[in-house]
Computed example of a mutant assay.
Amino acid sequence: MRLRFSGVCRLCGASLPARTEAIYESGTKTVRCLECPSGTETPPRNPEPAGEQPLPRESGIAGSSARREYERRKAKDEERLRGKWGRLGGLAVALSDERQSTKAWDRGAIGEERLGVVLDALASDGFAVLHDRRIPGTKANIDHIAITPGGIWVIDAKRCKGRPELKIEGGILSPRVEKLLVGRRDCTKLVDGVLKQVDVVRELTGDVPVTGALCFIDADWPLIGGAFRTRGVQVLWPKRLAKALVEQSGDLDVASIRDLVASRFRPA
């Protein structure tokens, strides 16, 4: 089909702009570029012994739960318009703009998908990533969990306009208060959300270092500097995040920690 909205190939991670011809997989509500195989080809007659190859490990699909929620809301909005306008429902759908609350889920899904491509490109024996993982007992999810030899990163992807800044109030005669501003909007609650996710992961992994990160995809970052830390949470952009992950050294067993985290935090 010709895509109505931009997406990311679930197999190779290639960006697929709107109106690109691609394959839509209704079962998972994901897209696949025409160059990638379907995954249904006949396997070789004499495969290598299982013990000689590492078992495949699914990292999950970045932005999948946000994409599903967007499609659900979009379908519900269109159904409401068709019910209201009857025979003119199709025309009403074509002429109506999407509600902002619905668009927000699309924007969020795109941000997670784009960051997922960056993180997947880092995958190696010393780096693992899990996308879109459900927090047990809740409806909330963690966008990305990266495991490096130096520790675990809990990453929240955001698409916000404006420049992220750290505003500090008090500190001498009054308590020090750190606020995260994005285009002069107080977004401190985003830091609170990441800290809660960090605590949940830390409960599972014990002494393994866990770092929280807010990664702003389309923010107005300055040419020099820009990244900062607030209350232990790193605030940065995709390339800077990738650099920080690659540079983190240590002697942790990435594979075993990845399996432990994946067993607790299932795909959303």
Results as ranks from 00 to 15, higher is better:
residue 153 W to P: 03
residue 37 P to I: 13
residue 102 T to K: 06
residue 72 R to K: 10
residue 132 D to G: 02
residue 246 V to R: 13
residue 181 L to V: 14
residue 19 R to E: 11
residue 258 R to C: 12
residue 58 E to K: 15
residue 141 N to G: 05
residue 109 A to Q: 01
residue 81 L to Q: 06
residue 244 A to I: 08
residue 53 Q to P: 03
residue 85 W to K: 05
residue 256 S to I: 08
residue 145 I to H: 07
residue 45 R to V: 15
residue 232 G to A: 05
residue 178 E to Q: 07
residue 241 L to C: 14
residue 78 E to C: 13
residue 27 G to P: 14
residue 261 V to Q: 05
residue 128 A to S: 11
residue 90 G to W: 01
residue 232 G to S: 05
residue 127 F to D: 09
residue 259 D to Y: 05
residue 156 D to F: 00
residue 13 G to R: 00
residue 195 L to I: 02
residue 258 R to F: 15
residue 268 A to K: 01
residue 243 K to G: 10
residue 229 R to Y: 14
residue 121 A to I: 03
residue 37 P to T: 06
residue 63 G to N: 02
residue 262 A to W: 09
residue 186 D to I: 04
residue 114 R to F: 02
residue 168 I to P: 04
residue 169 E to W: 01
residue 102 T to P: 05
residue 264 R to Q: 13
residue 48 E to I: 14
residue 172 I to H: 07
residue 217 I to R: 02
residue 170 G to K: 07
residue 157 A to W: 00
residue 71 E to I: 09
residue 133 R to Q: 07
residue 20 T to E: 01
residue 25 E to F: 11
residue 109 A to S: 03
residue 134 R to V: 05
residue 7 G to L: 03
residue 227 A to Y: 13
residue 93 V to L: 10
residue 100 Q to V: 11
residue 122 L to V: 07
residue 18 A to C: 10
residue 267 P to I: 02
residue 203 E to Y: 13
residue 4 R to V: 13
residue 229 R to K: 12
residue 157 A to C: 03
residue 161 K to H: 10
residue 262 A to R: 03
residue 122 L to I: 00
residue 183 G to C: 12
residue 162 G to F: 09
residue 156 D to C: 00
residue 239 K to S: 14
residue 106 D to Y: 05
